[in-house]
């Protein structure tokens, strides 16, 4: 191939690609997933993550999994967490090992976690929550690593999620109701 033709072909391919809405290809999956704690906003995260797999290889809880093609090509081999399967324990090791800062390095301290982690936000479906049905439960409150900061309980252990919830998902993981009455709304969605 002549150099000129080669460059022209490249330019044509580039033009073709530029028109493709690849960015919008995320969010295709039916799975309600979270990014690891300290992850950047979805677009910046995808631009940073190099798919090296070190976050998952460091996670002591094995809650970080990796996408195949089900969430679009841009998400291939990127890490995610499904809290109902295995929730994040906020150990912050993934951010420490991440080479690109796609997951920010954060100290494992209350203030840093409250400031830096925004995986999602828990919400309570009062129509199925046992405590709101008069059966004192309180499991979500006891599972929360940020008790009385991110979640408080009232009469009959009825849970109230505060603005400080970081979305680790331990409440959703431990909710004894099926389907679960407390769930994380992912912040990337």
């Amino acid at each position: 191939m002549e150099r000129r033709t080669f460059v022209a072909t490249l330019a044509a391919m580039a033009a073709g690609l530029a028109g493709m809405p690849v960015r919008s290809s995320t969010g295709e999956t039916e799975i309600r997933y979270l990014r690891p704690p300290g992850a950047l906003d979805e677009e910046d995260f995808l631009g940073r993550c190099i798919h090296c797999g070190q976050c998952g290889e460091t996670c002591p809880n094995r809650c970080i999994r990796y996408f195949g093609l089900e969430n679009g090509a841009a998400s291939l081999d990127t890490p995610y967490i499904v809290p109902r399967d295995k929730a994040c324990i906020l150990c912050m090791k993934c951010g420490e090992v991440c080479p690109t800062g796609a997951i920010k390095p954060l100290q494992r301290e209350l203030e840093t976690i409250l400031d830096g982690v925004k995986m999602g936000h828990a919400w309570v479906d009062e129509s199925i929550c046992l405590s709101y049905q008069g059966k004192t439960c309180g499991v979500c409150y006891r599972a929360c690593p940020l008790q009385d900061v991110a979640i408080t309980v009232g009469r009959l252990e009825q849970p109230h999620v505060t603005d400080k919830c970081v979305g680790c998902g331990l409440c959703e993981r431990s909710c004894i109701q099926m389907p679960q009455a407390i769930r994380i709304a992912p912040s990337h969605a």
Binding site: A18, C49, I50, H51, Y66, A74, D77, T78
Partner: peptide, 26 residues
């Protein structure tokens, strides 16, 4: 170019050493 256009490092998907490292882990 594909990585720049998609905003995700797609070139990692066609680079065998990166694939081997990941797939062995998976």
């Amino acid at each position: 170019i594909a990585s720049a256009a998609s905003g995700s490092i797609l070139v990692a998907a066609v680079y065998p050493p990166a694939i081997i490292g990941r797939e062995l882990y998976y």
